[in-house]
């Protein structure tokens, strides 16, 4: 079963990579966005789905990741790939610090604190003392990285960026799947389902929660970095509380406690606004709201949970 799942994942990534040569540059940009959002939601899934700690402010970590990459690239000329570890480290540290006070308390307090963080983020990014770095309200413009010379296949910048994003995302999903399956993942779920019993078996609940939050912030931060380069532009008003809420919607739609779920969630939040905005500017928000409530009532395990149930039922039925 494990091998099967791994092979399915590999096949999926190979097929997705093949798309780089099959579709238009604009579609490739959209697919890059799907991968970016999927990774951002994966980070949220680790803390909310597997550890039961509700975060409504992961857009803030996404923003920090995006800004770390943008500042390093625009001001210091650091190459794109080298900014990813930096943004991962900074976001992990930030997640640890923010999780420290809030995670000692019940889940609602974390939801409240992270919600406040998300609301305050654009203001912090605009703050004039950081303007030299962040570019203030104007933001920063980034160049799309060129594909390295001497590749066996001729790639344009969009194809190269898409493949890079896909590769990094695949690695992060593999790492997350391993984390969740292993001893730490078991501890994470034990803390979610019964904190007291988890504590009694020797798990340091507060430390585990804070560490999970840090890892989750790190993953979402890397997504932010990749998103900044894909869009080629960062500005405070792209990182409002709506971003955090959108990630939360994607998480619920995909399936909160699932590693594959974020892919569905990412596709949903990447494509829905394009479709819905044809109707009205307000339509995406309304659709998100209705879908969110509908999933809570009808399919709380999300698309991934629903598909999994269908697959299992099909497997059980005698041929």
């Amino acid at each position: 079963m494990r091998v099967l799942r791994f092979l399915a994942g590999l096949l999926f990534v190979a097929a997705a990579a093949g798309l780089a040569f099959a579709v238009s540059d604009y579609r490739l940009f959209q697919l890059t966005t799907v991968a970016v959002y999927a990774v951002a939601i994966l980070g949220l899934a680790l803390v909310t789905g597997f550890n039961g700690q509700i975060s409504l402010g992961h857009g803030a970590f996404y923003a920090v990741g995006a800004y770390v990459t943008a500042i390093l690239m625009a001001h210091y000329g650091v190459p794109y790939w080298a900014t990813l570890p930096a943004s991962a480290a900074i976001c992990a540290a930030l997640g640890f610090l923010i999780g420290l006070p809030a995670l000692r308390l019940g889940g609602l307090y974390l939801a409240l604190t992270t919600f406040a963080l998300a609301v305050a983020t654009p203001q912090l990014l605009k703050y004039h003392a950081f303007e030299g770095w962040t570019g203030g309200v104007q933001g920063l413009v980034l160049d799309k990285p060129d594909p390295p010379p001497g590749l066996p296949l001729p790639l344009n910048a969009d194809q190269w960026l898409y493949l890079c994003t896909l590769g990094v995302s695949a690695v992060l999903f593999l790492l997350a799947a391993n984390l969740v399956r292993g001893r730490i993942g078991l501890a994470m779920r034990a803390v979610r389902d019964h904190p007291l019993a988890a504590e009694a078996t020797g798990i340091d609940v507060a430390l585990l929660k804070t560490r999970t939050f840090a890892v989750s912030a790190m993953v979402t931060g890397v997504a932010g970095s990749m998103g900044a380069v894909a869009v080629g532009f960062v500005a405070p008003d792209s990182f409002t509380v709506m971003l955090s809420i959108t990630l939360f919607v994607g998480l619920v739609v995909g399936g909160v406690a699932s590693v594959a779920g974020p892919v569905f969630g990412g596709a949903f939040i990447a494509f829905l606004p394009n479709i819905a905005e044809d109707i009205s500017k307000a339509a995406p928000g309304a659709v998100y709201g209705v879908v969110l409530i509908a999933f809570m009532f009808l399919l709380p395990s999300g698309v991934a949970g629903g598909l999994g149930r269908l697959l299992r039922r099909a497997a059980r039925r005698p041929a």
Binding site: T48, G52, I54, L56, G107, L108, A111, I245, F248, V249, V252, V256, G285, A286, Y288, G289, V290, V291, L292, I293, F295, M296, P300
Partner: peptide, 15 residues
């Protein structure tokens, strides 16, 4: 669970 009620409230906020 708490997550369900938070989901409904966020849904209401968006709507």
């Amino acid at each position: 669970p708490v997550l369900a009620s938070v989901g409904v409230f966020i849904g209401l906020l968006l709507i």
